[in-house]
């Protein structure tokens, strides 16, 4: 088991009602973590998500370590 912190922004923050949460998980990769969280929160279809691990863009197959910060990034709309 490792502890992972997840921060939520925009549509995901509003959907979950959370700015962040910490969970204990056996997920080995980012996509396994997403699937586990999707089971809890039933994320809405937002389009193609990106992911960041520890404040850098990551890969869905990125491995997870205890204490990592993960952010799922919905399609952006700056400007």
């Amino acid at each position: 088991m490792k502890t992972i912190r997840i921060e939520y922004f925009a549509a995901l923050r509003e959907h979950t009602g959370l700015s962040s949460e910490e969970i204990a998980t056996d997920a080995q990769t980012v996509d396994q973590l997403y699937a586990e969280l999707d089971g809890r929160h039933e994320f809405p279809a937002l389009g193609q998500l990106k992911v960041a691990v520890n404040d850098e863009f990551g890969d869905w197959q990125s491995g997870l370590a205890d204490g990592d910060l993960v952010v799922f990034i919905p399609p952006v709309a700056g400007g």
């Binding site: 925009a10 549509a11 809405p44 279809a45 937002l46 389009g47 919905p74 399609p75 952006v76 709309a77």
Partner: peptide, 12 residues
């Protein structure tokens, strides 16, 4: 939210 699929249409 702009560019959000679920916001633009009924989400599947």
């Amino acid at each position: 939210w702009v560019n959000c699929e679920a916001c633009a249409s009924a989400a599947t």
